[in-house]
Design a protein around this nucleic acid. Sequence first.
RNA 1: GGGCUUGGAGCCUAUGAGGUACAGGCGUGGGACUUUUAAUCCCGAGACAGAGGGUUCGAAUCCCUCCAAGCCCUCCA
Length: 577
Amino acid sequence: MPTLNYPSTLRKHNARFCDEPMNTRSTSTDDSESTPPDPYEVARSGTAFWADAAADAIEARNPEEPVVLKGGVSPSGIPHIGHFNEILRCYFVAEVLRERGHEVRQVFTSDDRDRLRKLPRQLADENWEIVGLGDVDAGALGRNLGRPYTDVPDPFGEADSYGEHFTNLLRRSVERLDIPVEFVSNTELYESGAFDDAIRTVLSNRGTARDLLAGYQDGVDEGYVPFFPVCESCGTLTGTATGVDLDAWTVSYVCEDIETGDDVIEGCGHEGTTSLRNGKLPWRFEWPAQWDVLDVDFEPFGKDHAEGSWPSGTDIARQLFDNDPPVGMVYEWFTLEGAALSSSAGTVVTIDEVLDLLEPEVLLYFFSKRPLKQRDFSIENLDQLVDEFDRFERVALGDSDPGGSDRKQRAQQVYPMLADSEEHLRIPYTFAAVLGMTDDPDLREEIARREGHIPEDASEQAVAGALDRVEQARTWASRTGNAFDYELKRSQMPEVSFDPDTEQALDELAAFVAEGHDGDAIQNRIFELAEEYDLEVGGFFGAGYRLFFDDTEGPKLGLFLAKLDRQFVVDRLRRQR
RNA sequence: GGGCUUGGAGCCUAUGAGGUACAGGCGUGGGACUUUUAAUCCCGAGACAGAGGGUUCGAAUCCCUCCAAGCCCUCCA
């Protein structure tokens, strides 16, 4: 027995969901021992961290070491943050299990033998540049509809296939997040024969397989053969196998039209026979086959699978493969700015993009939250997420605990999974955005110090780390064009027109600046001049912001002007350049 | 049609195995820092937990009905 250190309340909780009958229309008469916990319950964790509950459920199965956690997606297009549920939900559970002394293997299957069903409207090249379908040879790509992703050429001509191209992109994002993941190609599993036993099991028990599936799906009739061969003539993953010869390890087929949603992929009509390694199992069988072949103990999945392929999959795992299905966990989908994430519709945020806007630990933090909650990823309001993380970090590190001890305990548990143990100095995100108005690193630091965001005794390294956020926040501000998007208009003077009083006041201010005064003095002078010329204070400041930022707002003007080179300021105040 | 998930102040995030929501943040109103903005500090307003029933001494937390959004019963994190 490993020493487990978690609250006793949790144990009670586990007992609860382990004993509950599965919430499906399973037709099986299995004993409770092989009934996996309800994947919704696994995602709910009461007062504990959800990954703890998942780890509990996994331990309840007495898994063999190493414990295998798996995720997977089809490489159908641009990998976006939603796909990372498959990676990061596993990651947190893996971390918990490691803490408990388990050996863990985190696996990701690229379901790359799935067929290309339709062309996405957008693609991303090997440099993560998003390009429209029109920018590649869409015609050539279109001729590959119906083929497995690994048989479709990479439209960018770099990788071996379309599937490999997008898998590579995803893998690189995983690497940027520094998550240890083993990638497995589904196509390779088929080609290497790793799936042979599973295929044999399905096809030699066709009647059982059919009956099982028919309990969950309509349209599974007598002639149904649960295998899709690749047509040797046109390369399409066909839908109609007509017979199998297990001794010869072949399957015969007719290459008929395939309906995929609204579209129909035309078959070439070829009738042929091919190897059982040249094709694939239908998803409903393939998933449990993966569990069996890879010895999967845990798998998170999107809510789209929760009511369909999960119940049938667990049933098939037990009854057909005689295998205990893994612990499943449902997660809700993210939205982007309130809209569904969709590669084809172009509502996509990639990990790469996000990491230009915030630190990896903030992104991980987003994924550490309750899985069943529908969450919006909002770039518009990204500052709120970062602020929330900063608070979370402070609580975890013990500086304060406004939310109570439970919250603190959780923070202390989760935080080490997000960030390294080095000292992190954080400048508030929106303030960092404002600092982006100047390119001068020294000036940035000075302003940050002046405003109290950098303590006297901060190490050089910590300061540098803190200022790294400025670039991210500035990118965010300029990308969203929000209120923090200040940019010093140094090279060219914005178009301005002021009334005569304002112009005179600006000239006097220029003269004052020319004399050489510190920031406070200049700030005071601005107020005095506004009074002397009977100008609205706000309006006069506004004139300054217009001149220097082409905006109505800006930083504390006097202090800021004092930091810039004097002649430039004087000239600009005189509207000369 | 059947099933599932989510639903807290203007917004975000918690809590959620029944026991008073003075919760935190953002935003907002006011004030302080010699006087607009950013930042910092103080104070204030703001929800009775989607709606309605029920169980209970007591429910945001259990049950029922309904509503909204999303998902599944073809493929899709």
